[in-house]
Design a protein around this nucleic acid. Structure first.
Lengths: 345, 345
DNA sequence: CCCGAATATCAAAGCGCTTTGACAGCCTTG
DNA sequence: CAAGGCTGTCAAAGCGCTTTGATATTCGGG
């Protein structure tokens, strides 16, 4: 069933039917009603491609997820972010287009994306420092919103991000308040912008108390469970082990917990851990009773997805001269993984 | 730069330019070369929407990911599967379209998807038993490949799946060989088809040795770390605890391991665990030395994604009367989480 | 040297929709 | 009652591409 068939059926012109369906004012209310019921009855739904060819709007948003060719990893927060964004798109009548880009072919892929005009804008995931995608997208003229920020980028752009620096400074400060002095940082890869900010926050909190950071207690790697385990195990086995950990992800924190337990120590009593919790659906940070397992800096990545979608659509639908930005504060939620430094440590 | 501009520039008709670019034989080789270089130089890339309006092919595949409204969870294997599929699409010149569907609105969403004609086919994720999506898609006439199977579906359809029944039977058999008799199953939600098959395999292996299954040792739930922990903890605290676990996911297995350690037991020595390993990029089942942590039934979900994409494209490009099916055998890889039953248990 | 086949190119129709500009018909208003 | 303003509807152009059917051009063979 296409527009022509429907309008023939109704004895109206395609123009009138199209207008009726798209809510234009110049069609009589009685006609609109007649058209709408006919459309419903016959299951008429406009062909997206024809429509977007005519309007110039693709009604589709691209999500560009970089696959690090080195590690072949997909960011685990990606699925939840997508789910959040998808909710908003569905409401707004947009489609979601996924573009999996090996970092080697970024430029080519983006140019093709823009030329082929099948998305109205993109969400940029996992920005690095001096991320080449931002100037590229600007040059191409494709609207975009970045999930995260790029400290290396000087020109303004739209982004939303959690206050990573503040969150990690607070987490570290909290551990210092508990008396800890040997605090380790298990971070993500530090060419990722968020990881750099977290590191900054960590270092700043230490510096504020006049404590020198120990490079042996800082590790940056892909945020997997085994990596968390390996890092923590090595540190705990060293001569002057940490009494507390700040960890960039719940996933690596699970590895840290394993290393702690394996050493016969109790998390929360002997060793404290604060993790960053993105509220991933498969790692709800809560025990059966709903009490958080990890003390955590918390910020829902799913919620971020919803907001990113909302921002991008608003930019596309009515472009503003100034870019949109949104900064979330992470909550610091108390769980059972932190406690005062034990005497003698 | 569009086709008209390019052909004007070259002094050729749009027809010739289009044919030259699309590899039709009726254009002189010299002309083709001239056209191709001009296209490259001026960065001409055909507008997808116009092209697919003309050809009737969307050059786009939909991935329908159900969001269980109850749990608001996104299947964690989804990201890796997508990454694998994405690789193949990129090679074949297809786009990937994501459709996040709350299970309540399935029918409506699919019908709209088909009517709007913006995908040439879909991959169905996470089939349930008697999944309504299969008959629906067949009725609509949209080509599809199911990742997994639907035991409740009698009509033939294209699918690819891992031999879950066999894998879990082997895993259980292996534990029986090691002398274990009290073996627990920590499964996924059993309205999911894969979970049901795993359960079957588990039960069959027990039955083959004449061992009665103990309902107290069987649990089906969302495969999260806390759920694995809760289930294992409860079982280990009961009067006649299991000496081994078969677990449907590496993620819940991490919870099981936690419960074991917390009880002061050693995984692999006091209690054995076999997990199903989808080779998720963030949960590589290996320690620093590359030795698997968990003994596991292993099958790469990323590889499955690649294959699913390949199957679907082949179905779309040259439809066969019979559906395509592909069954993988999971490897049973020995890690350090299994060992013989201890005396006296 | 002409004819017919093969080769290279083209004009135009069509994909299904939106949107512009025009046009009937009707109602006010002076 | 004519002029002018609304209303509701329409025909047709256009979005950028592919593809059909036709038309030049070339070439070898009789």
């Amino acid at each position: 069933m296409n527009l022509k068939q429907l309008s023939d059926l109704l004895g109206l012109s395609q123009t009138t039917v199209s207008r009726a369906l798209n809510g234009y004012p110049e069609v009589a209310e009685a006609t609109r009603l007649r058209v709408e019921t006919a459309a419903r009855v016959h299951g008429y739904i406009p062909n997206t491609r024809a429509r977007s060819l005519a309007t110039g709007r693709a009604m589709s948003i691209g999500h560009v997820i970089p696959i690090s060719t080195k590690h072949e990893m997909v960011n685990p927060i990606f699925a939840d972010f997508i789910a959040g964004a998808g909710e908003h798109y569905a409401r707004a009548g947009y489609d979601m287009h996924l573009i999996v880009v090996p970092d080697a072919e970024e430029a080519r892929t983006y140019r093709a994306l823009a030329a082929r005009r099948n998305v109205d804008g993109v969400i940029v995931h996992a920005p690095r420092v001096h991320d080449p995608r931002l100037p590229l997208l600007r040059e191409i003229g494709l609207p975009f919103v970045v999930h995260g920020r790029d400290s290396g980028e000087t020109a303004p752009y739209s982004w939303l991000d959690v206050n990573n620096r503040r969150a990690f400074a607070r987490a570290t400060g909290f551990l210092l308040d508990l008396g800890h002095r040997r605090i380790a940082l298990i971070n993500g890869l530090e060419y990722m912008d968020f990881a750099l900010r977290r590191r900054d926050g960590f270092l700043r909190a230490l510096a504020d108390r006049g404590i020198a950071a120990d490079p042996a207690l800082m590790r940056a790697d892909e945020m997997t469970e085994p990596n968390g385990y390996d890092a923590a195990r090595a540190m705990l086995a060293a001569p002057d082990p940490p009494t507390a950990f700040v960890v960039s992800s719940i996933i690596s924190a699970m590895g840290v917990r394993r290393a702690i337990q394996e050493r016969g120590l109790r998390m929360g009593a002997d060793v404290s851990v604060i993790a960053h919790d993105d509220e991933l659906s498969y790692f709800r940070n809560a025990d059966g009773a709903g009490i958080p397992i990890f003390t955590a800096t918390r910020s829902s990545v799913r919620q971020a997805g919803r907001q990113a979608a909302e921002m991008l659509l608003s930019i596309i639908e009515k472009p503003e001269p100034d870019p949109l930005t949104r900064l979330f504060e992470a909550e610091l939620t108390l769980g059972r993984s932190t406690g005062p430094r034990r005497e003698g440590d």
